[in-house]
Amino acid sequence: MTFSHSTGTRGARKPGRVVRWFNGLALRRIRRRGGPVLGMRLLALTTVGRRSGAARTTPLAYFHGGPDRWYVVASANGAATNPAWYLNLAARPDEVEIVVDGETVPVRARELHGDERAQVWGRITTSSPQFAKYERATDRHIPVIELTRRDGDAPST
């Protein structure tokens, strides 16, 4: 199944200038040292802009899914619309890379659906309850994205 692109009719405000400022600080830290930022495990997700074709990098909380597998959530803090990085992934799911724990990893993105999403979502909301709050703030179905290392791509640093 593909990306759903669903939007809602209600939700929290999208993150503003303070969050963009924090994202810049978080990206520098992720690229320099990796590790948690303010207690959150973060990765740097680089997508290709669906309209511009330019590289776009966003820090995101992630959840381990096993070797060479990571999960990210397109919550936008519970906003009614999906974040821009999600739309970029939907347009070009095979043109993605992440920096995680100091390693640059080319990945493929896939949105989870049905029972598979429900199982992963349960693990995410158990370990990070704020995501359940985001879900309550909107009537949008919050996408869960699986990132897996692209076949044949060796680890790089």
Score class of each variant (00 low, 15 high):
59 P>R: 05
115 D>W: 01
64 H>V: 05
94 D>S: 13
102 G>D: 07
139 D>G: 07
48 V>W: 06
113 H>I: 07
45 L>S: 06
150 R>V: 11
21 W>G: 10
39 G>C: 12
121 W>A: 04
21 W>F: 14
70 W>D: 03
50 R>C: 07
98 I>V: 15
157 T>A: 13
151 D>A: 14
18 V>S: 12
59 P>D: 10
138 T>V: 06
31 R>T: 13
82 N>Y: 02
69 R>L: 13
7 T>R: 11
17 R>Q: 13
131 F>R: 01
25 L>M: 14
64 H>W: 00
78 G>D: 04
80 A>P: 06
78 G>W: 00
126 T>K: 11
1 M>Y: 05
76 A>L: 13
89 L>H: 10
141 H>W: 08
66 G>L: 12
118 A>S: 14
150 R>K: 13
2 T>V: 08
87 L>R: 13
14 K>D: 03
34 G>Y: 11
126 T>M: 03
104 T>V: 15
144 V>I: 14
25 L>W: 12
96 V>D: 04
47 T>S: 15
140 R>K: 08
103 E>D: 12
55 A>I: 05
124 I>N: 03
64 H>I: 00
26 A>I: 11
80 A>L: 06
126 T>G: 09
138 T>C: 08
10 R>E: 00
135 E>L: 10
12 A>L: 03
57 T>G: 07
123 R>F: 03
122 G>M: 03
145 I>E: 01
105 V>R: 11
122 G>Y: 01
148 T>A: 14
6 S>N: 13
82 N>H: 12
45 L>T: 05
120 V>E: 05
11 G>D: 08
115 D>C: 01
38 L>F: 15
142 I>D: 05
154 A>F: 01
83 P>M: 04
15 P>W: 04
109 A>K: 08
79 A>M: 02
130 Q>F: 13
87 L>M: 09
128 S>Q: 13
67 P>I: 02
33 R>W: 14
134 Y>D: 04
59 P>N: 05
1 M>H: 12
85 W>V: 00
69 R>K: 09
48 V>S: 06
152 G>I: 06
43 L>V: 12
117 R>V: 03
97 E>L: 08
67 P>M: 09
92 R>Y: 04
101 D>L: 10
14 K>E: 10
29 R>F: 06
73 V>W: 02
100 V>T: 10
108 R>L: 10
75 S>N: 02
22 F>M: 15
95 E>Y: 04
131 F>S: 11
110 R>W: 00
64 H>C: 05
107 V>Y: 01
77 N>F: 07
57 T>K: 02
120 V>G: 01
90 A>G: 15
100 V>G: 14
153 D>F: 05
115 D>G: 10
71 Y>K: 01
46 T>C: 11
86 Y>M: 04
34 G>R: 11
13 R>D: 15
62 Y>G: 03
140 R>Q: 01
45 L>H: 09
156 S>R: 12
54 A>D: 10
6 S>I: 11
7 T>P: 00
67 P>T: 14
121 W>R: 07
9 T>L: 11
39 G>E: 10
23 N>L: 01
135 E>W: 06
94 D>Q: 14
82 N>M: 00
32 R>T: 14
149 R>D: 05
111 E>T: 04
108 R>T: 12
80 A>R: 14
134 Y>W: 07
76 A>C: 00
130 Q>S: 09
43 L>E: 04
72 V>P: 06
35 G>P: 07
88 N>R: 01
44 A>Y: 04
140 R>D: 03
